[in-house]
């Protein structure tokens, strides 16, 4: 069975094309474009909230997008236990929409940063996204954001760790979560988290930009392949 990915376009989304490319050209799956003002998920099995600058990051990144009509349907989709994933600005929207805990703040450097980073797969509660990765696997994936510093209170961070919900952590090439390997000052080097049920994933790095060796890495591909194996089966 194949999967239909719904890629939401908010005004200001700009990595929607990156997501389409990964789904259609690389995976060979179906993608539908979900307009922010619509109420219809068009039969999408997986919803992707793409990167970009929805509403120009007015107020805070993701703060206005969460009120878009389509988000009501996305929240309902998530509450049904169906997969929702947000990359970069999509992660910010998921936090603003309270589908994920915590918040994304301005990078500690106060500068936008575009670079390749190493990630370690630490999550254990979300096999639908992580199944095709080995536990502790090291990945090389790009980041490109100005507001990517994940923060939450200590109790929440402890809970995320305890429940295996820290999906990805920034590490150095040897796999150690050092300060130098942390590109934005995120709490505990956290790059991506999942919800308690394991069906919502938000992450600042861009796995959809790492799906072909020609672009420098295909380490993002197993995330999509996990979905295909688990949800599409």
């Amino acid at each position: 069975m194949s999967l239909t990915f719904g890629v939401v376009t908010f005004p200001g989304s700009n990595c929607d094309v990156d997501a389409w490319h990964a789904v259609i050209d690389v995976l060979g799956e179906r993608a539908v474009s979900l307009w922010h003002a619509d109420h219809d998920l068009q039969g999408a099995d997986v919803v992707i909230l793409p990167g970009g600058f929805s509403y120009g990051d007015a107020l805070r990144a993701g703060a206005i997008a969460r009120f878009s009509p389509i988000m009501r349907e996305v929240i309902a989709h998530a509450e049904r236990g169906a997969p929702v994933v947000g990359f970069c600005n999509g992660f910010q929207v998921l936090c603003e929409a309270h589908l994920l805990p915590g918040a994304l703040m301005r990078n500690a450097s106060s500068k936008f940063v575009c670079d390749w980073v190493h990630l370690r797969v630490d999550g254990t509660n979300a096999p639908i996204f992580l199944d095709a990765y080995a536990p502790g696997q090291l990945l090389r994936i790009p980041i490109a954001h100005g507001e990517g510093r994940f923060v939450a209170d200590e109790a929440t961070l402890d809970q995320l760790e305890g429940e295996g919900r820290v999906a990805f952590r920034y590490v150095d090439a040897a796999g150690h979560a050092t300060d130098d390997a942390n590109p934005n000052g995120a709490a505990r080097n956290i790059a991506g988290i999942t919800n308690a049920a394991g069906n919502v994933l938000g992450m600042m790095p861009h796995p959809e930009r790492a799906v072909e060796p020609l672009l420098g890495s295909a380490d993002g591909l197993p995330l999509f392949q996990s979905l295909l194996a688990r949800v599409g089966a």
Partner: peptide
């Protein structure tokens, strides 16, 4: 300087 620019968005067309 270049780290402050998003050099990868729209991967599909730049290639």
């Amino acid at each position: 300087i270049t780290r402050q620019y998003d050099s990868q968005v729209r991967t599909s067309t730049v290639a």
